[in-house]
Design a protein around this nucleic acid. Structure first.
Lengths: 239, 239
DNA sequence: GAGTGGTCTAGACCACTCT
DNA sequence: GAGTGGTCTAGACCACTCA
């Protein structure tokens, strides 16, 4: 919130949301915006690049910058791959409830060592949680995190939001994530906890998250009953 | 391939791939690279920003720029959401075969009108294709495209690669895509064409693609048997 | 304190689109 | 030709990390 280009980006985002800049219409050109905000044109461009990456606007060299309309097939149930809030933040405190099925510390097997780039002597948390949204079992999460990077993780954090603990208490920043989407038939724990029938479709997200310093902090799988949740992803081309 | 930052980015990408810059090690700093390539430091920074967005490197202010290691759980079967090649390009001409199930021109219903941002009088192609990879039915694609944007689409293009026709013959560029991943149980056409059993898990990708001029060019759904294909997505955080 | 990447400026030229 | 966004430069200052 402190850099100039973020201030400019937020101001423009606000104008798009409140309708000052209308869908499919041109917004003022970069020079005009630079004058208005008393910044250099490059600073405006950087702000617009960010909004374009979010999908809010699109630019055409020689013409100008347009506001993009909403994507029709997004619903509030869908989870965007493009933000890092975590489930707690997405659904809101009032709607989400977590049932901790297991919360252990153990030494990692070879697969976990590889994914988290750690040695066999580095302990990891092994956490299984059932996320209940508005009373409905919605996600079964299986999470591994290196103890070294997330010291003193308490039951209390696991009950609510581990991401809040990592971001706000430890002051760590996420650098990025890699995700893999697959479809499976429900088995074992899915049937037990998600209250679905054997073989019914499950959307699995396998996920590797790293910090801004490049260290791997989380390897997890999330299993969602097919009818309850979808994931969305936005991609903008720049070549 | 023509701008300076692309030249620099490609040179650095090459050095990472051929091992000149090693995994988890620092690459030369921005000033050194700027000197070497005879460009300004900002140009180097822009090149590095691009490589960081691709996930190849990560930067830490105050320390330097590191080469990121490979993500362990990617397999060659997985399709990356982060590129725009199309199925034909991904699998290679030798491995992929397309069976055109239907190829019609019709007037769009309300759902298609909304997704493609067109009127009811604008005709669309309605194409159903079965993609066969190495002899195995792998994807059932259902595609809508506005006739106005893709004139003179011939059976020949549908048999091979529509993307090649759009990019190379029509000279159009993709601007971005929005995708939604869901899990379903196989039904109707899935059973018939993908040779799977009723109710077996299907990974569906619903997709909206637009051109660099902002116009919607494709609305499609792709259905993959759960055991055959996964999708991967990379996200880098910048706030 | 030295070195790193991040931000910002003023000014320039280019490629592109429309009239 | 006028106006748009894209690229590039030279130079400056900042925040951050490590010794």
């Amino acid at each position: 919130m402190s850099t100039k280009y973020q201030v400019v980006a937020n101001a423009i985002r606000e104008r798009i949301e409140n309708g000052t800049y209308k869908i499919d219409e041109l917004i003022p050109d970069q020079n005009a915006l630079a004058q208005e905000f008393h910044v250099n044109r490059l600073t405006v461009k950087k702000a617009l690049d960010g909004l374009a990456a979010e999908g809010l606007i699109y630019k055409q060299s020689g013409l100008g910058t347009y506001v993009r309309g909403k994507i029709p097939f997004i619903t509030p149930h869908d989870v965007s791959v493009n933000d890092f809030g975590g489930a707690f933040h997405h659904f809101g405190e009032e709607h989400i409830q977590s049932k901790v099925i297991s919360f252990d510390v153990e030494l990692p097997d070879e697969r976990i060592q590889k994914n988290l780039s750690i040695k066999h002597i580095d302990p990891v948390y092994n956490i299984t949680r059932l996320r209940i949204v508005d009373g409905k079992p919605t996600v079964l999460e299986h999470t591994y995190m290196p103890v070294r990077l997330v010291p003193d993780l308490e039951r209390e954090h696991v009950d609510t939001s581990i991401y809040t603990y990592i971001n706000e208490t430890l002051g760590l920043k996420f650098g990025g994530a890699f995700r893999k989407f697959s479809a499976f038939g429900a088995s074992g724990d899915d049937i037990k906890y998600l209250e679905v029938e054997e073989g019914s479709p499950i959307l699995e997200v396998e996920q590797l998250v790293w910090l801004s310093n490049g260290k791997m902090i989380e390897y997890s799988t999330s299993r969602n009953p097919g009818n309850l949740r979808s994931y969305t992803a936005l991609n903008v081309n720049n070549f």
